Simulated assay, not measured.
Amino acid sequence: MYKLTDTFDQKNPLPLTTDGELRIVFVGVGSAFAKRNRQSNILIIQGDHHLLMDCGTQGPLALNDVGLDVKKVRTYLPTHSHADHIGGFEEIMLTNRYFGKPTPPELIILRDYQEILWTKSLSGGAEYCEANQGRPLQLNDFFEILRPKATQVLGRKCWVYQHGPIEVVLVRTRHFPDSADSVDESQWCCGLYINRRVWISGDTMFDREYPERFAQEAELMFHDCQLFTGGVHASYEELMTLSPEIRAKCYLYHFGDNWDQPETWVRESDKFTGVPEEDGFLGWAEPRVAYDFL
Score class of each variant (00 low, 15 high):
residue 294 L to P: 09
residue 245 E to D: 15
residue 92 I to E: 04
residue 153 V to P: 03
residue 148 P to S: 10
residue 102 P to K: 01
residue 260 D to L: 11
residue 8 F to H: 05
residue 273 T to L: 10
residue 274 G to Q: 07
residue 256 G to L: 04
residue 188 W to S: 13
residue 31 S to D: 13
residue 28 G to Y: 03
residue 265 W to H: 06
residue 135 R to H: 09
residue 197 R to H: 09
residue 47 G to A: 07
residue 270 D to K: 02
residue 184 D to W: 06
residue 274 G to N: 14
residue 84 D to I: 00
residue 289 V to R: 07
residue 75 T to N: 03
residue 142 F to L: 07
residue 68 L to I: 14
residue 230 G to S: 00
residue 120 K to C: 12
residue 294 L to W: 11
residue 171 V to D: 03
residue 193 Y to I: 02
residue 85 H to A: 00
residue 69 D to Y: 02
residue 113 Y to V: 02
residue 217 E to N: 05
residue 113 Y to A: 00
residue 157 K to I: 07
residue 102 P to R: 04
residue 189 C to M: 14
residue 115 E to W: 06
residue 136 P to Y: 00
residue 222 F to H: 05
residue 181 D to C: 10
residue 24 I to Y: 15
residue 215 A to H: 05
residue 184 D to I: 12
residue 116 I to C: 01
residue 180 A to N: 12
residue 250 C to K: 07
residue 263 E to N: 12
residue 39 Q to I: 00
residue 65 D to L: 00
residue 153 V to M: 14
residue 274 G to V: 05
residue 236 Y to D: 01
residue 61 L to N: 07
residue 227 L to T: 01
residue 153 V to S: 11
residue 85 H to C: 02
residue 5 T to D: 02
residue 3 K to M: 02
residue 133 Q to E: 14
residue 82 H to T: 11
residue 89 F to W: 02
residue 263 E to R: 15
residue 150 A to P: 01
residue 197 R to M: 01
residue 45 I to S: 06
residue 21 E to S: 14
residue 124 G to D: 12
residue 49 H to W: 08
residue 19 D to I: 00
residue 58 Q to E: 04
residue 32 A to G: 14
residue 217 E to Q: 10
residue 279 D to R: 08
residue 52 L to V: 08
residue 286 E to R: 13
